[in-house]
Simulated assay, not measured.
Amino acid sequence: MDGSDEVCEIFCEPCEKAKQKTIAEGFCVDCSEYLCGQCFNHHKRFKQFEHHVLQDKNSMPLDPKHTVSKYVCTSKCQVHADEVIKYICKTCDKIGCNVCMTIDHRSCDGVRYIPDEVKKSVTSVEIQEFAKMIDDMHVVQQELYSKIGQNFQVSDQMIKTACMDLERQKDQIVSFFESLYDTMKTEVVKNRT
Rank of each mutant, 00 (worst) to 15 (best):
Cys8Phe: 10
Cys8His: 13
Glu13Ile: 02
Pro14Glu: 04
Gln20Trp: 07
Ala24Phe: 01
Gly26Gln: 00
Gly26Trp: 00
Val29Ala: 08
Tyr34Cys: 04
Tyr34Met: 03
Phe40Gly: 00
Lys47Phe: 07
Lys47Ser: 10
Phe49Asn: 10
Glu50Cys: 08
His51Leu: 09
Val53Asn: 09
Gln55Leu: 13
Pro64Thr: 02
Pro64Ser: 07
Lys65Glu: 07
His66Tyr: 04
Thr67Glu: 14
Thr74Asp: 06
Thr74Gln: 12
Cys77Ser: 02
Cys77Lys: 00
Asp82Met: 09
Glu83Phe: 04
Ile85Asn: 02
Ile85Thr: 04
Lys86Ile: 01
Tyr87Gly: 03
Tyr87Trp: 07
Ile88Phe: 10
Ile88Asp: 00
Cys89Val: 01
Asp93Arg: 12
Lys94Glu: 08
Cys97Ser: 00
Val99Gly: 01
Ile103Asn: 05
Asp104Cys: 11
Arg106Pro: 02
Ser107Leu: 08
Ser107Thr: 06
Arg112Asn: 03
Arg112Ala: 10
Val118Asn: 02
Val122Pro: 02
Val122Ser: 05
Thr123Cys: 14
Ile127Phe: 15
Glu129Phe: 07
Ile134Trp: 04
Asp136Tyr: 01
Gln141Tyr: 12
Leu144Ala: 09
Ser146Met: 12
Lys147Arg: 12
Lys147Glu: 14
Gln153Pro: 03
Val154Asp: 12
Asp156Ser: 05
Met158Lys: 13
Ile159Phe: 10
Ile159Asp: 06
Lys160Gly: 04
Thr161Met: 15
Leu166Phe: 09
Glu167Ser: 10
Lys170Phe: 11
Leu180Val: 09
Asp182Asn: 15
Asp182Met: 07
Thr183Pro: 12
Met184Cys: 07
Met184Ile: 13
Glu187Gly: 08
Asn191Thr: 11
